[in-house]
Design a protein around this nucleic acid. Sequence first.
RNA 1: GGAGAAAUGGCAGAGUGGUCGAAUGCGGCGGUCUUGAAAACCGUUGUCCGUUUACGCGGACCGGGGGUUCGAAUCCCUCUUUCUCCGCCA
Length: 427
Amino acid sequence: MLSIKRIQKEAGEIIERLKVRNFDGSEIIGQVIDQDKKRRGILQDTEKKKAELNRLSTDIGNLFREKKNDEAKQTKEKTGKLKEEIKKLDKEVGEIENKLNDLLIQIPNIPHSSVPAGNSEGDNEEIRTGGEFPELPGDALPHWELAVKYDIIDFELGNKITGAGFPVYKGKGAKLQRALINFFLDEGTKAGYLEVQPPVVVNEDSGYGTGQLPDKDGQMYYIQTDNLYLIPTAEVPVTNMYRNVILDAEELPVKNIAYTLCFRREAGSYGKDVRGLNRLHQFDKVEIVQIQHPGKSYETLEEMTVHIEGLVQKLGLPYRIMRLCGGDLSFTSALTYDFEVFSAAQKKWLEVSSVSNFESFQSNRLKLRYKEKGEKKTNIAHTLNGSALALPRILAALLENNQTPGGIMIPEILRPYTGFDIITRNP
RNA sequence: GGAGAAAUGGCAGAGUGGUCGAAUGCGGCGGUCUUGAAAACCGUUGUCCGUUUACGCGGACCGGGGGUUCGAAUCCCUCUUUCUCCGCCA
């Protein structure tokens, strides 16, 4: 969320910049400013009364000690009314704070100045492209047919044991998946990321911390008995490791990489684009997360983009990098680059990574701060994350783009991980 | 799952109703001493909020929430977590 202080200082500019994401913030920001002013007024009143009560209490203690019991009793009588008033004012402040919080969580992050205006995907801006489009024969198969032909992914079996969107990977399919995970993790650790294995189930506080709650409540699987959520991305547990933490400035940037399962209900996305591996309820993903000094977070975003680009290049996939327009930008992000690879048999661009700078939007809520050496003041850090990479669509593109009459060729770089260089019908 | 114990500052650890934001030790930071370092000694050392040009002043926080009291780290309720023992188990 945005900080109240920033809203007070830059209200006009914020309203202006939120227009890029087609968000009219004028009314809500006005309300925030009003409520905050009201809050501070009452707070001052409350604190004055509390100070008075504290003084009386100290007096009473002293009087008892000096055996002036009568005087103490008299003083005691003065406190009753004061206490009542304090109770009432405290309640008022609490109510206003709740209201303020409700307002604040409705305001999305401020888009970076480079974010183009626009309503949807079509308005995203292409930044770079790379890789070669494969020359496939006319009878090239989409990956869901290759999966059957080579018996490497079983969608039917997944339907049977769980439901749609939960495939079973088999044989070389499973091994290829495992190879990709290890490859991505190794590349990340080489680039200085610390590997972590977080829980894939998180509590409510963590959901709020990174902004999945209350916004995307219905998109997460929820375990009612224990009031826990299955994570939609490793971003949630990894970033929340730093909830309520004050880092030393020298520790920045913090770089973590995590492989986890991800679970998404994908409510409301039935129909198109859900065939095969294109959209799953459970999938594997390697995620990179950084915590950075505010002055350096955009440099870091570029660095992460280059890292991800390197992965796609090493896998030999044709790709393009898109800068998301205001309308396509997620609620919490200030700037996002999407990576898409071309899956040549279905002739589709598939999103395989999304790398974002959240600036202080998550950190404000997380209370994630850092402190310069020798300074007393704490500052809000910036958080960033990106997929590096999401597995299923990479797998889809690899299968489709590398199919040959003799089998599916494994990219050179993965062969040390798979132990085989081709997927054939008879393993 | 059953029985019991506990949760205090970066860490260790005192504190069972009043000047306790909290003793003491360690660590950290600054200084004296030293060619340099160590040791020793002296000082300092939490976070958030409000207010103030500033010095400062005020409020809140001893796992979370609620309560009793003029006054709570201390008493009561509740939740969470940790430890010990028993049971079950990858």
